[in-house]
């Protein structure tokens, strides 16, 4: 089972993602409500996987991803996005995100993706 950090400015989304992950026995070690909290929480909790919303208020997912991977290039990040943010998702994958999940989140699909990312070396 993996340790996760959930990054999303929506408390509803954080609650839903936590529910899905914990139902599968994963551990959510930290949450962040915007990109600026990512670095502090990553250093403190060292999650195996970060789920990162693309569209956030103060610091967006792309910027936070860049910042995180610059310091921790092996960090595993799964982007979370609506379909319409395809360009940003492609940019995130180019920058080093491991995968992406489309909203609204569907439990089985989400778990399949994060479990596959967890299995990557």
């Amino acid at each position: 089972m993996a340790k996760f950090m959930i990054v999303d400015d929506s408390a509803v989304m954080r609650k839903n993602i936590r529910s899905i992950l914990e139902s599968e026995g994963h551990e959510v070690v930290a949450e962040a409500a915007d990109g600026r909290e990512v670095m502090v929480n990553y250093v403190s909790y060292r999650p195996d996987i970060v789920t990162m919303d693309i569209s956030m208020g103060n610091m967006g997912g792309i910027e936070a991803l860049q910042l995180l991977l610059r310091t921790y290039p092996t960090a595993k990040v799964v982007m979370v996005s609506a379909i319409g943010h395809k360009q940003q998702v492609l940019e995130a994958i180019k920058l080093g995100a491991k995968s992406y999940v489309v909203k609204p989140i569907e439990r089985v699909r989400f778990l399949d993706i994060v479990n596959r990312v967890d299995a990557q070396s």
């Binding site: 929506s10 569209s55 996005s81 609506a82 379909i83 319409g84 943010h85 909203k103 609204p104």
Partner: peptide, 17 residues
């Protein structure tokens, strides 16, 4: 309030085809 915000975000995002 948050659900209405999140839902509007998803509705708009999924309208971009």
């Amino acid at each position: 309030v948050e659900v209405v915000a999140e839902l509007s975000n998803v509705i708009c995002g999924n309208a971009i085809t």
